[in-house]
């Protein structure tokens, strides 16, 4: 993502997503920067929408939170109206449409949607304009290029969600150590048959 191209300081981030055989892991770090100073060390970039769906963001926090509020509302509304659980692809598509509607004044955030539905564990990556690409693993943000190396070297398609969680945490920690805009802790969300479990760990 281009940095500070719009004349105001923007925040970096690292978020990692891994779709395993039996669940999805979304992880991020917790630093929120404003230029070269740290605004908070308790930033939240990974969110459980319900016990089967989660989103993770990398980019401007205000845009991320605005998108989060809308997609949570849309997901709840969908499930109430249709009386059916929302599939991961459907939520990703609604999100893509919300983002594309702002094509002339885009949000400044990259999004990952992960969850479990009747087709199993799924992960989608959306760019700021709302393109949707399905993948088995991804890393977004200023630390994404660093994190993806860790994930790629150890990922295997039949890895379970426990191994996936360890891998995601290692990947975020690698990015923390080499990206100044990432740091201050690791948030992990594991979505599996047990539901959505969130955890916070130290940066090292």
């Amino acid at each position: 993502m281009p940095e500070a191209q719009f004349g105001y300081p923007v925040t970096g981030a690292t978020t990692v997503g891994i779709a395993c055989k039996d669940g999805v892991v979304l992880a991020s770090e917790k630093r929120v920067t404003y230029g070269f100073s740290i605004m908070t060390k308790a930033g939240k970039k990974v969110f459980a929408i319900n016990n089967r769906l989660g989103v993770a963001f990398a980019g401007l926090i205000s845009d991320s939170q605005a998108v989060l509020r809308r997609i949570s509302a849309e997901t709840n509304l969908y499930e109430l109206e249709t009386r059916k659980p929302m599939s991961v692809r459907a939520m990703a598509k609604i999100l893509a449409n919300l983002l594309y509607a702002q094509r002339a004044y885009p949000v400044y955030t990259e999004t990952m949607v992960g969850g479990m539905d009747e087709d199993g564990a799924k992960l989608f990556v959306l760019d700021p304009l709302g393109s949707m690409i399905e993948d088995r693993y991804a890393a977004l943000g200023t630390g994404g290029a660093i994190a993806i190396g860790i994930v790629e070297s150890a990922y295997s398609p039949d890895m379970g969600v426990e191994a996936g969680k360890d891998l995601a945490i290692r990947a975020v920690r690698a990015a923390i150590s080499r990206d100044v805009a990432s740091g201050d802790g690791v948030d992990v969300l594991v979505i599996s048959k047990q539901g959505a479990i969130e955890e916070t760990l130290p940066a090292k």
Binding site: A96, L99, Y100, R103, D127, L129, G130, S131, M132, I133
Partner: peptide
């Protein structure tokens, strides 16, 4: 080209 435009 731009993936979002193309997909939409």
């Amino acid at each position: 080209g731009l993936v979002a435009d193309a997909q939409m």
